[in-house]
Write a protein that binds this DNA or RNA. Sequence first.
DNA 1: TACCACAAAAATGAATGCAAAAATTGGTAG
DNA 2: CTACCAATTTTTGCATTCATTTTTGTGGTA
Lengths: 246, 246
Amino acid sequence: MKSTILETGEPIGGGGDGGRAAEASLHGEILIRLRDHVVEGNIPDGGRVPERQLCELFGISRTPLREALKVLAAEGLIELLPNRGARVRALSERDIEELFDVMGGLESLAGRLACENVSDAEIAEIERLHYEMYGFYLRSDMHNYFLINQRIHERIVAASRNETLRATYATFAGRIRRVRYSANFARKRARWAEAMREHEMILDALRRRAASELADILFHHLRNKRTAAVEQMGAPAEIMTPPSQL
Amino acid sequence: MKSTILETGEPIGGGGDGGRAAEASLHGEILIRLRDHVVEGNIPDGGRVPERQLCELFGISRTPLREALKVLAAEGLIELLPNRGARVRALSERDIEELFDVMGGLESLAGRLACENVSDAEIAEIERLHYEMYGFYLRSDMHNYFLINQRIHERIVAASRNETLRATYATFAGRIRRVRYSANFARKRARWAEAMREHEMILDALRRRAASELADILFHHLRNKRTAAVEQMGAPAEIMTPPSQL
DNA sequence: TACCACAAAAATGAATGCAAAAATTGGTAG
DNA sequence: CTACCAATTTTTGCATTCATTTTTGTGGTA
C-alpha cells in the first residue's frame, strides 16, 4: 500500500463538483492535471490535443487519458471531432458574451441566496477584503486588486450555502479563466473606478440583505465586465503568447 | 431524427451541451442512451450500475461504456466509488433544494436576458401557450398542464438567446427530472392556483420586458416549486417503484 | 449459533492490440 | 513549377487482455 492513493471510499464526481474530489484513481488525477494543462493555456486555442504525447507526458496509457478527454469535452473546455481527435475549444466573441452572462446569472443567484444565509462574521470578512481591495485600487496595484476581487466573489458564492452552485460556478470560472486573465489587463482607469463603485453597492446591498437588489447589481456588474472583456478582445494587439509549448 | 448516426463533422460536446450533439461515435450514442436509462429510473436510487450487464444490454464493450460513466459522473447523475463501481446518485432533500435554487437562478437569468432579446412573435407564442395551459388548469388536466408548463419555461430559455445557458439548463433539468415528475403529482389545488397566478405575472413582466422584475418572479416561482417538491418528499407514501430492474 | 479466516469468484481499473479513418508523403502528369 | 492522386504513416475508436481489489462463499472454531 502506497502513500499517494487515498483509501477512503469517498465518492467521485458526486455533485458535478468542479473537480475538487476525484484525486484518487489515476483517471481522476489525470482529469485534474489535464484540465489544468488546458486551462493554463499550454495548448493554443483550437490546437490539437495529441493523445500520444500527453500519454507519455503523464506517463500513462491512453485509456484513462481518453476518459478524461470525454469529461473535459462535456465541460466544454475542449471539443471532440469524430475520428479527428480533441481540440482546445476556441471561444468566439459570442461564446464569451454568453459565458459572462451565465456567470452573471450565477453570481446574481449567489448574492440572492447569500442574503438569506450570510452571517455577520462573513459580512465583516467581506468588508475587510473590500477595504483591502480599495487600498490596492488607490495604489493602482492591478494584480492584487484582481486577486482580492476574485476572493470577494468567491466569498459571496460560499455564503450562498449552495454546494451545487459553488461547483457550477467553479466550472464556468475555469472556462473563461484565460479570458478573464487577459481582460484583467484592460487597464482602463474609467472602468476600474466604475467597478469599484459597483463593489461598494454590492457591499451595501449585502449589509442590508437586500436580495433582489443585490441580484440586480451583481448581474449588471458582470455585464459590465463582459463589455470590458469584449472591448479588450476587439483590439488585442499582442495576444498573450502561451509560455512556449514543447 | 434521421437514421441515428449523423455523418457531419459537427463537434461533440462543444458547449457543455446537454447531450444534444454527439450522436455520432458509439461513445456519444452510449452516453445518451445510458443517461436516458438512468434518468428514466431504470435503476433505483443508490443502486449499482453494473458495467457487465449494460455492456451486453447495449451490445458494446466496456471501454465506451466506461467513458460514458465518467461523463455522467461529471454531470452529477451518478457517483463513482474507487474500485467499487458506479452508483445512481441518490438525491438528498438538501440536494433537491440546491438544485431547485440553481434552476431558479438559471430561469431568472433566462427571463432577464429574454427581456433583452425576445421578439413580439415569441411573446405571442408564449401567450398562446399560457392560455392553452390555463385551459388545462380549468379542466384540472394535470398532465397536459405540466407539459405546456415545461414548454413555456423552455421558450423563455430559448428567448434568452444564450446557447450556453440553454445547455446548462438542460443538464440541470435532467438531474431533477425524476423529482419533478413525482413532485408533479402533488395535486395540491392551492399550490396549483398559486402557480397559475405566478405564470400570469411572468407573462405580464415579459410583455413589459421588465427584466429585473421578471428575474425576481421567476426565482420565487421556482422557490415555491422547491417548497412544494420538498413537502411532497416528506410524505411520499408510495414511492414510484421503478419498473423492475433485471 | 455466531463469528472469523481464508479461498474462490466477480468486478473494477488500466494497458495493450487491432481495424478503420485521417493526415502526410511521394510521385506523376499537366 | 503546380495541381492532383496514390501509398505510407499516423492517429483514432473500440475490443480485448491483464493485474488488483472487492465481494462472495465456505468451513472451522469458540
